[in-house]
Amino acid sequence: MVISDETRSKIDEAISKYPVKRGALLPAVHLVQADHGHVSKECAVELAEIFEILPIQVMEVVTFYNMFFDSPQAKHHVYVCTNLPCSLRGSRSLLSQLESHLGVTAPGETADGRIFLGHEECLGACGYAPMMRVDDEYHEDLDVEKAKRILDSLGK
């Protein structure tokens, strides 16, 4: 069993909140990812058992959404928004400077697996551009120095 008992009971709780079991699939995938960083084949099989669907139905959902992953991930996810409003305020040059700072080409991760750096579509912060999302947190009104400091403070 790869999904822990604790996570399983959280999934059960989520299931109890929906009129149909499968309604809790997205919450469950979020929970599994919080533990494992991604949804492995084994996790997909176990989720499928819990939700009484086929493993491939878990996987088609995982591959559809940007925030779900089917392969192992770096410790931290950093996304610079490069949609139009952010681009108009310098997000692309911010991204390229962060690329050189970390020595990676976005989308890509640092050799030590500490940071994945990528770009993302509009994150609902257009008035505070440029901005980046670091895991679950938004950092807005950035300049390069501020962004670098944030990246440097991310633990291993």
Binding site: N83, L84, P85, E121, C122, G124, C126, G127
Partner: peptide, 11 residues
């Protein structure tokens, strides 16, 4: 779901 680029009012 506010994801329309340029929109950040619902947030």
């Amino acid at each position: 779901d506010e994801s329309e680029p340029g929109s950040f009012k619902d947030r």
